[in-house]
Write a protein that binds this DNA or RNA. Structure first.
Lengths: 217, 217
DNA sequence: TGAAGGATAATTTGATCAAAACTTTGACAA
DNA sequence: TTGTCAAAGTTTTGATCAAATTATCCTTCA
């Protein structure tokens, strides 16, 4: 009788926290306490503790020597290294996904893309970030590559808080969108064009996040 | 009064387990229980539990749906993806390390290399693995790149158990060793040659690990 | 005013325990 | 022999608590 009857609470807490980090609900540098989160989320301290430990291991959070856990503040070097990797990993995932692409999947992607455009029109930052995340990982999961998928996930959680800041700063006007080119290439089954479109999308995102802050006093 | 007076136990347990996994003390597929490890290591169950959770997050261990934790068995696809990444990340770390290379560091690397050669002569698999690990990461830490360093660490822990199997199968005769070329390039400050030597080293390792098992019944 | 020192509060850490969930074992029937 | 079911034995999970550690605040003194 082996079935998954119940999902352990530390997993649900983990998922919730990860989602919040990914969508930038926490500011970079903000400190998180076990007790505070447990109260806020209506969970026990033990599951929260384990979830924090896991997120720290994934570099979604940083554990200071003071035993204090904070949302990491990325340096310029960190960001350039993250994009160095993203520009390798995510186009490759896109390339591999092309082989497994189905009409059903393409339709699903088009629907998500429509939602993204709607969010952009309304200037809804959170909806944009959420849609963009779903769009990319709907492609990546199709590649069926454990290792690359996990790496991409890790990079996204690390960049999440900073990306949120950028969006808040510039609004949704200049958001990268090579999604139409990407969808065309995917539906044609052209893996090189798909990978290139992904590279373009990432390059735009990199420019945005590396741009100097608008008005730093 | 902020100083690091005492190291938490879950960290030491984590380090010990990671070391054991890296050197292949556990076979791929082997199950690990919290209680068993706690007894074996003379630690409490709480620190062991947290260490396992962290190692699982780093993909050094795999958490089955049964809640059972095992040492992962890598598929061919996993291995090729890991080497795809290694061939990007580790040469780049080597390249970046060239800028920060000092004579002291070079000497240290030469000493480690001598120990590796001694281990190879004696057919000492564990000493070889340990030396090789120290050699590579002594280079990588010099690069001062958080993100790439962490990625390399993660990839090594994942490949560890499989590498151990390969070494046990073929002995230490055919182990990759482009270390002299690497050391020469590093001491000349030739970053391209250094990165290339690292690529060659990894390519050899990849060949070895992808080779068909000798006599599978 | 401002720095040093210490008391107090908040937080993390690790142990322990009960409950839940899973695996295994063995009995019994087809 | 094969398959099913239930009971027993492990193992994980989450709550709780005491001890250790760190942060914060308040007083005192120059």
């Amino acid at each position: 009788m082996n079935s998954q009857t119940k999902i352990p609470e530390h997993l649900t807490v983990y998922s919730q926290l990860k989602e919040m980090i990914l969508l930038g609900r926490f500011a970079p540098g903000q400190a998180l306490t076990i007790f505070g989160l447990a109260e806020e989320m209506g969970a026990g301290t033990t599951p929260v503790r384990e979830a924090l430990r896991r997120l720290t291991a994934e570099h979604a959070l940083t554990s200071l020597e003071n035993r204090r856990i904070i949302v990491p503040e990325l340096s310029e070097k960190d960001i350039s290294d993250i994009y160095f990797l993203r520009l390798i990993v995510e186009p490759e995932l896109t390339r591999q996904s092309t082989k497994n692409m189905t009409d059903t999947k393409i339709d699903q992607l088009r629907r998500i893309d429509a939602q993204i455009n709607e969010a952009l029109d309304h200037g809804d930052v959170v909806a944009y970030l959420e849609g963009n995340n779903r769009f990319h990982f709907a492609i990546y999961e199709t590649a069926q590559s454990q290792v690359l998928f996990q790496t991409a996930r890790s990079l996204w959680v690390q960049i999440g808080p900073s990306l949120r800041i950028v969006c808040g700063r510039y609004g949704t006007a200049n958001m990268p969108d090579k999604h139409s080119e990407l969808l065309d290439a995917l539906s044609r089954g052209d893996e090189n064009a798909a990978a290139q479109a992904m590279r373009d999308d990432l390059a735009q995102s990199h420019l945005l996040i590396s741009a100097p802050p608008a008005h730093r006093i």
